[in-house]
């Protein structure tokens, strides 16, 4: 009999304080046309930031996200637009869409893993709208662009006017992501851009997302690999994983195992290190066990490929 006596309550989101949900939460809507105006608004009080809206809209409709009293649409701020390169640093404006990245020649030629991640991001309709800044701030452990951006040592640029004057700080992406859906952005800060050092021309990178379809899928796991291969060895080896930890992560011990050595000789210890570095959970998309198996099997193939470059 005891085995029947399990809890029968359906786990659902807690009811919002008013019956109106999202419809009752937004007191003010702003669509500033300058960074300065946006930062002033952020300084004034709690703000929900809207960029592409592709995550915010469904989250708010289902009650998974709540609005602050001010909804601020940042899509009309010119300072957040564009993709450009200056003295070896590539700057992606926070509002650059996945389509913008896919169509950018520099991304295509020098950031293969990022291009691949954008290519298998959701669908064309979403790629046209979803922004790189939004994907980062949403901080999903399975966020598609996070893994390649970690591989490329991306930094995020945060602007604020905490004391009335413009202040910016630059934070490594790996420090910016602090938990599922959580970042180290202060409430008065705006992510304005992502900066990525331009890798040298020999740097190769690849991205893999587990799934039976090319896109429209939330990955069970994802892997980013980057390195300067030389005669079967990897220099500057960089490994990142998605959906196997509370955030997308770099795997420094795996990288250290590989660094400068022949892939063929270090692959087993590297896989062992990777297995130690990940901490997957079981959910509706995959079990922890399967995630570990995927990381091991797929990483092996990716390392072998890079080793042959």
């Amino acid at each position: 009999m005891n085995e029947h006596l399990r809890s029968t309550a359906v786990e659902r989101e807690p009811a919002p304080p008013t019956p109106w949900g999202a419809a009752d939460e937004i007191a003010t809507y702003l669509a500033p046309r300058s960074l300065d105006a946006a930062l002033e608004a952020l300084r004034a009080g709690p703000v929900t930031i809207l960029a592409g809206g592709t995550d915010l809209m469904p989250q708010s409709k289902t009650g998974r996200a709540r609005f602050h009293p001010t909804l601020m649409n940042i899509r009309r701020i010119p300072e957040l637009q564009g993709i450009g390169e200056a003295s070896g640093m590539v700057r992606f404006g926070a509002l650059a869409t996945m389509t913008d990245l896919l169509e950018n020649a520099l991304v295509r030629s020098r950031f293969n893993a990022l291009w691949q991640a954008c290519d298998c991001f959701a669908s064309d309709q979403l790629r046209n709208v979803a922004t790189i800044g939004g994907n980062i701030c949403n901080a999903s452990p399975a966020g598609d662009t996070l893994v390649p951006l970690l591989v490329f040592d991306a930094h995020v640029v945060l602007a604020s006017k905490a004391d009335g004057t413009l202040a910016t700080r630059t934070v490594p992406l790996r420090d910016f992501l602090v938990g599922p859906g959580r970042t180290s952005r202060r409430p008065d800060e705006l992510l304005t851009a992502v900066e990525v050092p331009l890798p040298n021309e020999r740097f190769v990178s690849a991205f893999y997302k587990a799934g039976a379809r090319p896109a429209l899928d939330i990955s069970a796991i994802s892997i980013g690999v980057g390195a300067n291969p030389a005669a079967g060895a990897l220099n500057d080896a960089r490994i990142a994983f998605g959906a196997v930890a509370p955030t997308a992560i770099r795997a420094p011990r795996t990288e250290a195992t590989l660094e400068g050595r022949l892939v063929a000789e270090t692959i087993e210890p590297a896989l062992k290190a990777a297995d130690d570095e990940i901490s997957p959970i079981s959910d509706v998309r995959a079990s922890a066990w399967y995630r570990r198996e995927l990381i091991r099997n797929v990483l092996r193939g990716m390392l072998e490929n890079v080793g042959q470059c």
Binding site: G53, M57, L126, N128, V129
Partner: peptide
């Protein structure tokens, strides 16, 4: 550009 209108804020 094509977009899902269900994800687009009308205000936008």
């Amino acid at each position: 550009s094509s977009a899902n209108s269900c994800l687009l804020f009308a205000a936008d």
